[in-house]
């Protein structure tokens, strides 16, 4: 006997999202305390971040979130082709985000700004904390982006072969919720890391 409960699955996904929010919550707590101790150093260090790349990534993520939400509407309306296209756009956005991040991190590592580097040890304590937080937070965020990408890839395959369809789409909804979570965290990361100059 198969037991199916879409609301139950969604509830489960939401609870999982709560745990993710609190996982990042621990990091934001560290951020709040470090920032209250080293506010001027945080301002100085934030100058090293490229707010333009950050802004582009914000736009990219917002667009990807919208396309995921639209793909759910498309599946609900039975428009399989549109749903797949929208999800592919989402994955494309994720790829753009990753490439941007690759250049951003790559540049910093190239000039020697990474935890434990010789240059880092010459900086003030507050700046060290800022960059440590920067790497840890964006790194963990990127990990979630990759996981979200994998989930959506599975969703695309399932939309294609029809196991996600008009009557049965909770998996896509849950994948979408996870993707929005990635977006949600970035909404806070962007101003807190890039815009505090």
């Amino acid at each position: 006997m198969e037991h199916r409960d879409d609301i139950g699955s969604k509830l489960g996904m939401w609870i999982f999202i709560f745990t993710e929010i609190l996982l990042f919550g621990g990091l934001f707590l560290v951020y709040a305390i470090m920032r209250s101790s080293y506010s001027t150093e945080f301002h100085q260090a934030a100058h090293h971040l490229n707010a333009f790349i950050g802004a582009i990534n914000t736009v990219v993520l917002l667009v990807s979130s919208a396309t995921v939400a639209m793909s759910i509407s498309a599946v609900q309306k039975g428009n399989k082709k549109l749903a797949v296209i929208l999800l592919l756009i989402t994955l494309l956005c994720a790829a753009i985000f990753m490439v941007n991040k690759y250049f951003e991190w790559g540049h910093k590592i190239h000039i020697g700004l990474y935890p434990g580097s010789a240059l880092m040890l010459t900086l003030s304590h507050g700046q060290v904390m800022f960059f440590s937080l920067y790497y840890f937070m964006t790194g963990l965020h990127m990990f979630h982006l990759v996981v979200g990408g994998i989930i959506l890839t599975i969703a695309i395959i399932k939309v294609q072969n029809g196991s996600i369809n008009k009557d049965r789409y909770v998996l896509l909804e849950n994948g979408g919720l996870y993707w929005h979570l990635v977006d949600l965290i970035w909404i806070y990361l962007f101003p807190l890391l890039y815009l505090i100059t």
């Binding site: 979130s65 919208a66 939400a69 909804e173 979408g176 919720l177 929005h180 977006d183 949600l184 909404i187």
Partner: peptide, 11 residues
Amino acid sequence: KAYIVLTYFMH
């Protein structure tokens, strides 16, 4: 922004 995402995108 988070409120809007939660309300509409996250349904």
